[in-house]
């Protein structure tokens, strides 16, 4: 039986202020580092708008934010977060700590509860105790600290893979041994690259390019990243936490 009320009163066509611009983001926390990555394709429907539109942004030397969903909202949201962090720096003469940025983001998202930013955020970086951390958010600000998280178009492809490879779900350690609670940086980087090549293979909205941000805790050596091709440092200070970015190609079809 069709819904008669809908037929008797056809609804007026409304302007839709949202779009879905594809792409996927992902972050993994290590013991003393965090990796935050996103692809660079921006699409609408079946059209690729551009092959290079960054979704991952350095906020401070110890915080990196990845945004995914509606691109206009994402860009505006990052702009506003950066503005708030700048105000904080002028007021307190230091960068905002990561957990405070996470709470700030939740407040800013919830402030738009009834006209939300259609954006899934993943914040990664280094906590004040020097540990790697990942915070993931829904569009209206519900958030959680985790060890790893994927979001966006290929979330359903990538997240179960991370469950298996990062959390060792459904794997039993050899007798007398246990799974590591944190993986070393080179392992994490290869899992990130594998996740994105897999997602590119099976999801049309993922591809073109990959940007991987690496945040290292204060005093941590470059062990595990020193030989990487095309590594670029973005940190403003040498004696604090350090931020690096790596760019890799993904398939463009």
């Amino acid at each position: 039986m069709p819904n008669m009320s809908a037929i008797v009163h056809p609804q007026q066509r409304h302007f839709n202020p949202y779009a879905e611009n594809g792409g996927t983001i992902l972050a993994i926390a290590g013991a003393d580092f965090t990796v935050i990555a996103g692809d660079t394709r921006q699409s609408e429907g079946y059209s690729i708008q551009t092959r290079y539109a960054p979704k991952v942004f350095r906020l401070t030397d110890r915080a990196v934010l990845a945004v995914n969903g509606f691109a206009a909202d994402g860009n505006m949201f990052v702009k506003k977060v950066k503005q708030r962090l700048e105000w904080y720096k002028h007021a307190h003469a230091k960068d905002m700590p990561l957990r405070a940025i996470a709470r700030l983001i939740q407040t800013m998202l919830y402030a738009q509860r009834f006209f939300p930013y259609y954006v899934y955020n993943i914040l990664g970086g280094i906590e004040e105790d020097g540990s790697g951390a990942v915070y993931s958010f829904d569009p209206v600000g519900s958030y959680e600290r985790e060890a790893c998280r994927a979001a966006g178009a290929a979330q359903s492809l990538v997240q179960p893979f991370l469950d298996n490879q990062i959390y060792f779900k459904n794997q039993t350690a050899a007798p007398g041994r246990s799974h590591p609670s944190h993986l070393p940086l080179p392992d994490v980087l290869s899992i990130v690259v594998d996740s994105f090549t897999s997602a590119t293979e099976r999801h049309i909205e993922v591809g073109d390019g990959l940007e991987i941000y690496i945040v290292l805790a204060k005093g941590r050596s470059l062990q595990g990243v020193e030989g990487l091709h095309g590594l670029r440092e973005l940190s403003t200070q040498e004696d604090g936490e350090r931020v690096f970015v790596l760019q890799r190609d993904l398939k463009k079809d």
Partner: peptide
């Protein structure tokens, strides 16, 4: 979709 992601990996 989840199977695609894990199997591909």
């Amino acid at each position: 979709d989840k199977l695609f992601g894990v199997a591909e990996g």
